[in-house]
């Protein structure tokens, strides 16, 4: 284990790969490994990239990584793909779009499956980010398929979240439904050379302005503070981040310099007024709650006898017990039986 820890800190690729497996599988020693790496984390810039399937996220990530490499920055990529709910398996094909990055020792790409359990991805990806951060990568790009919870989880882990759209994937109501306006720091309309790009850009802009100034309040809340705006004038412009809507043609590298500039601007914005600190504080709070919840459930399930659970399920199915009462009974029984849970 010590060899693994020093290997990661030295940036040895085999050690990094194995450490990622250890944390992803929550194998024995994962906690020790993460504890040893933790003091070496906090340096990387973390960018989340999310969006519907087919919007070109992997291609965009590849183009961004290539551009950052041209500036001599080291880049790690975590590409998350969904696990099949039927078999528990997954097919992860993001590397197909990232072949331009092959052979570059300053790039590390890792595919991760969501593995089904709610909140599990968030824990696993946070841990994976820490391993890559400790290994010294300057930029960590985390790509997920945007479908509800996972994209919100990303926003809670990254410092800057890009939401990728493409022309012709539904009207502006889809954008509100999916909640993308709340989580996006930067909106990217990829495949901007395709018909319909103009209307996608203008409807996204309209949606952002529709929320104005409420959208601005929301954006601030998203970074940990709520300020009420009396006069949304230029004076307050610097304090608020209004997500820009950018166009890219990632397959040809179009719009990538502008996107990088927007990412840099968002980073500079976070540096204002301690916004980054409050974002980080909020992320730590969420993470602690999340981990505590998982640990408590695991502990409780380990001590509740299987027969008791099975019996309750049968009674609920027979309609002689309701689920709320069952939970209360389980908690009461366990707390009195195991005072250390109190």
């Amino acid at each position: 284990m010590n060899e693994l820890i020093t290997g990661v800190i030295k940036g040895e690729r085999r050690a990094i790969a194995r450490a990622l497996t250890v944390v992803e599988n929550e194998r024995d020693g994962a906690e020790m490994l993460l504890a040893a790496l933790f003091p070496h984390t906090g340096r990387a810039q973390i960018i989340g990239i999310t969006g519907a399937p087919g919007t070109g996220k992997s291609t965009l990530v590849s183009a961004l990584a290539k551009a950052y490499r041209a500036q001599q920055q080291t880049v790690a990529i975590i590409a998350v793909d969904p696990t099949s709910p039927f078999s528990g398996g997954a097919i992860m094909g993001d590397r197909i779009r990232m072949r331009d990055l092959a052979g570059d020792p300053g790039v590390f790409i890792r595919s991760m499956a969501t593995r089904g359990n709610l909140g599990g991805l968030a824990r696993a990806s946070r841990d994976a980010i820490r391993v890559l951060d400790a290994a010294g990568f300057e930029l960590i790009l985390v790509e997920t398929v945007g479908a509800g919870q996972s994209e919100v989880d990303i926003a809670r882990t990254a410092q800057t979240t890009l939401v990728v759209e493409a022309p012709g994937l539904g009207d502006d109501v889809q954008a509100i439904k999916a909640g993308i306006l709340e989580i996006a720091d930067i909106l990217v309309v990829n495949k901007a050379d395709k018909p319909g790009a103009d209307s996608t850009v203008s409807s996204l802009k309209a949606m952002l302005e529709l929320g104005h100034p409420a959208a601005r309040e929301q954006m601030v809340a998203h970074h940990g503070r709520i300020l009420h705006v009396q006069n949304p004038a230029a004076a307050v412009e610097a304090r608020f981040w209004l997500p820009p809507v950018l166009r890219t043609v990632a397959s040809e590298g179009g719009g990538i310099p502008e996107l990088m500039q927007a990412i840099a601007q968002h980073r500079a914005h976070l540096a204002l007024d301690g916004a980054l600190q409050s974002l980080e504080k909020q992320q730590i709070e969420i993470e602690l709650h999340d981990r505590l919840r998982a640990a408590l459930i695991a502990r409780l399930l380990a001590i509740i006898p299987q027969e008791m659970l099975a019996d309750m399920i049968a009674r609920i199915q027979a309609r002689t017990l309701d689920p709320h009462a069952a939970v209360q009974q389980l908690l009461a029984a366990q707390v009195s039986q195991y005072p250390d849970l109190r």
């Binding site: 099949s84 528990g88 092959a102």
Partner: peptide, 23 residues
């Protein structure tokens, strides 16, 4: 393999031996 519960990383066509070993 996915249907058998495995996680498959599919790299696509025309991979060099170096690319395969790196992946």
């Amino acid at each position: 393999l996915r249907d058998a519960g495995m996680e498959v990383i599919y790299t696509g066509l025309r991979q060099t031996p170096e690319m395969i070993a790196e992946a």
